[in-house]
Amino acid sequence: MRHARRRVVRRVTRLAAVGGLLCGGLMVTQAMASEPPASGSAPPTSTARTVAGTGSGLVSRLGDARTAGSWIGADGEPVVAVTDEEAAAEVKAAGARPKKVRYSMDDLNSATEKLRSAPRVAGTSWVIDRSSNEVVVRADKTVSSKDWKRLTKLAEEIGGPVRMERMEGTYTTRLNGGRPIFASGGRCSVGFNVTNGQGQFILTAGHCGPAGSVWFSDTAGTQQVGRTITSNFPGADFSLVQYAEGQGDDATNVVDIGDGRGVRITSVADATVGQKVFRSGSTTGLADGEVTALDATVNYPEGTVTGLIETTLCAEPGDSGGPLFSEGVALGVTSGGNGDCESGGTTFFQPINKALTALNVQLTGVEGGSSAGEPAPAASASEGAVAPGA
């Protein structure tokens, strides 16, 4: 597995307090921060949304038997994988760039179903790599030679679409048990503030703790923030923490990344392959990267999680549950991965729309609080920045 060094935009060593709530190691999204520019050029937000919508619309119209997904190309244009010349002509006529491939999305999905039905091996993952038209199966260093041989045999039986890779490091959930943020758990990060219309809650990772876990804003465990009332892990990776009385009264959705400034979250969307994204966490602060795959399956030691977003972002223990976003658009919360922010690695995220739907909540302070169904890639990162008290 490649370990290209990823850029950590800023390491947050001290968190700002807003509305009197200070959560120490627990990153709170009421705090204010600013989102730095993404590396490289990208189209304006409205154009980027149109680009993503064009690709996904063509895939829906042509169907999974004739396409193999879409993504945002390096030039910011929509790319659609197609299996026949007629589909390619239709894609080109719609203003997108066709890429002729051998396997359809039906073929690739069939391969992942066979992998999913095989005996589980901890320390493995698989994703559909749309740009290479393959299902990539990865195994970390904890996977034994015996299991590796068994997986390789299965891949050979499935056939052409599957590629096997050995990777450095190990797959772990990004929980840090060395810091007592909540009882019998560890250090995590707040993802987003959400509401059911009657109360205020924190959305974070499910592996941070089971229902009943108590969260504190100080390492001594004397200032209670809330209690986990619902947790979904493994399978998925999200949980809902109900604020303690008086703690969530001024909750907003402005992602903290330090220096007393913030990026206001204004909408929710599904991630898109090729999208430039940011992640914030209480251990490493802000990092930027790119979405490389969707619907990833990761076999953590604790259990299997499916439907994840795969990215080139780095993360470290304590960053679990932190927000994934792009230009004020909420995309997900940090699940786990491999590597670190010195050597680089891969980080997976729980898609936020799936969590909001399952929990029957919406983002606090966001009109409608749910996705309009349109992916929102990153644009110029200065938009949405607010100053303290805004």
Rank of each mutant, 00 (worst) to 15 (best):
T112S: 06
T112E: 08
K114T: 11
P119C: 07
P119E: 08
P119W: 07
V121D: 06
V121W: 02
V121Y: 01
V121G: 08
A122P: 04
A122T: 14
G123N: 05
T124G: 05
S125L: 12
W126N: 06
W126E: 09
I128E: 12
S132D: 14
N133C: 01
V135Q: 02
V136Q: 15
R138S: 15
A139Q: 13
A139D: 07
D140Q: 07
D140K: 05
V143I: 09
V143N: 09
S145N: 14
K146S: 15
L151K: 02
L151C: 05
K153S: 14
L154R: 02
L154Y: 04
E156F: 00
E156C: 01
E157Q: 14
E157D: 15
E157L: 03
G159N: 09
G159S: 10
G160P: 13
P161E: 08
P161F: 02
P161T: 09
V162K: 05
R163I: 06
M164W: 03
M164S: 03
R166S: 12
M167T: 14
M167L: 04
M167D: 04
E168Y: 08
G169H: 02
G169Q: 05
T170W: 02
T173C: 01
T173K: 06
R174G: 00
R174Y: 15
L175N: 00
N176I: 01
N176V: 00
N176G: 09
G177Q: 10
G177E: 13
G178N: 13
P180Q: 09
P180N: 11
P180G: 08
P180S: 06
F182H: 12
G186A: 02
G186Y: 01
R187E: 15
R187W: 10
R187I: 07
R187H: 12
C188H: 02
C188G: 12
S189T: 15
V190W: 08
V190H: 14
G191V: 10
G191N: 12
G191Q: 10
N193G: 07
V194A: 12
V194D: 13
G197T: 05
Q198P: 00
G199P: 00
G199D: 15
Q200P: 00
Q200Y: 08
F201E: 06
F201Q: 06
L203N: 10
L203Y: 11
T204V: 07
T204E: 04
A205M: 06
G206V: 07
G206E: 04
S213G: 06
